[in-house]
């Protein structure tokens, strides 16, 4: 099955399309992108949303849908069957795992990672170097179903572990660790661990004792990022660490 590329779409150099891809007219694709089988780019959303701008070097795996009206930075990497709705602003090198969805009007910083089956609610604000592991949810409706929108804000270098839920309006400070299965709500100061019973204490006490691996993670996991991100990671990590030392 051939790809259906609207002739009005702007396609960069060296862009590869799989079988059955559909690209609408209001799409701008940067150079060196790979769009997998049966993806849809520029899917119409409600209202007039403007173009979908997909930065260079993207890898969009099969059956993914990117709506119109979003701007996505360089080197997006998605799994299969992901959805990014309209009017979202996304930074450099976002990675999105299989079956995750990012609802509309989200703001996501640079080098953020979503594992599979994450649900990012409409209007969620996510900083740089954030991790959302599988089955995490950020909600935005405090009284569902309603027209109230009270999205979640997640600071830089936050880690949200498997199956954690972020309630509407939650503000998570930079460097926090939301434990597996926890429910985050309210305003969470920077550098705290949130467990199943609420805030448990400073994140620098979170240690895997057998290996002495500790939070914040910039000391043991920065090598997972490219060279040009290292300075920002170290600076952010040092800020979080200094604040924690002062507080404890």
């Amino acid at each position: 099955m051939d790809a259906m590329i609207d002739p009005q779409a702007s396609i960069g150099a060296n862009v590869r399309f799989g079988a059955g891809v559909r690209v609408y007219a209001n799409v701008e694709i940067g150079d060196d992108c790979s769009i997998g089988d049966f993806c849809i780019l520029g899917h119409p959303g409600p209202g007039d949303n403007g173009p979908l701008r997909l930065g260079p070097g993207a890898t969009v795996r099969s059956h993914s849908v990117l709506y119109e009206g979003s701007t996505i930075g360089p080197k997006l990497e998605t799994g299969h069957h992901i959805v990014i709705r309209e009017q979202s602003q996304i930074g450099e090198n976002l990675r999105v795992g299989n079956f995750s969805d990012i609802e509309g009007t989200c703001r996501i910083g640079d080098f953020t990672r979503l594992h599979g089956y994450a649900h990012v609610g409409k209007g969620t604000r996510i900083g740089d170097f954030v991790w959302l592991f599988s089955l995490t949810t950020t909600m935005n409706d405090p009284l569902p179903p309603s027209h109230i929108e009270d999205p979640v804000t997640i600071g830089d270098m936050v880690t949200v572990c498997v199956n954690a839920q972020c309630m509407p309006g939650t503000e998570i400070g930079r460097g926090c660790l939301i434990a597996a299965g926890a429910v985050a709500e309210g305003v969470i100061p920077a550098g705290q661990v949130v467990g199943r019973d609420g805030i448990e204490g400073p994140v620098n006490f979170a240690m895997h004792m057998a290996t002495r691996t500790r939070h914040p993670w910039h000391k043991h996991f920065a090598d997972a990022y490219p060279a040009h991100a290292q300075g920002r990671i170290q600076a952010l990590g040092a800020d979080i660490e200094a604040a924690l030392l002062a507080a404890t």
């Binding site: 467990g195 006490f205 979170a206 240690m207 004792m209």
Partner: peptide
């Protein structure tokens, strides 16, 4: 978390 804090 208390356990690792005690250790540290």
């Amino acid at each position: 978390l208390d356990f690792s804090e005690v250790a540290l």
